[in-house]
């Protein structure tokens, strides 16, 4: 089990397209992946849940990953969040 904290840096936050990209990426891993914001913890492979987190710019979130490929998953997903989901702003 791995956990790491991140800050959402892109202007629009985890909006629909960013959430979709995040979820698609999470789905590539067999590990159980969860996102936590405050007290709210959701399945990171469910786009509805990820969108309902309402993680705007500046939000602190925690990524919690448990499973065989947890190390690679944390690396890839962490990179995605830190790159602002590849968006310009």
């Amino acid at each position: 089990m791995l956990q790491q904290d991140f800050t959402i840096i892109n202007k629009l936050g985890l909006h629909a397209r960013a959430a979709a990209l995040f979820v698609r990426t999470a789905m590539r891993f067999s590990s159980c992946i969860e996102l936590q914001k405050g007290q709210q913890r959701v399945d990171a492979k469910s786009i509805m849940n990820v969108m309902l987190l309402a993680a705007g710019k500046g939000t602190q979130i925690q990524l919690r990953i448990k499973g065989e490929d947890e190390i690679e998953a944390m690396c890839v997903l962490g990179e995605l969040i830190q790159s602002g989901f590849g968006e310009d702003e």
Partner: peptide, 16 residues
């Protein structure tokens, strides 16, 4: 296409 992908994911989401 990036606008359509979220919708496709929603249709596979347990919430729906």
């Amino acid at each position: 296409a990036s606008f359509i992908d979220p919708h496709m994911l929603m249709l596979d989401d347990a919430m729906l």
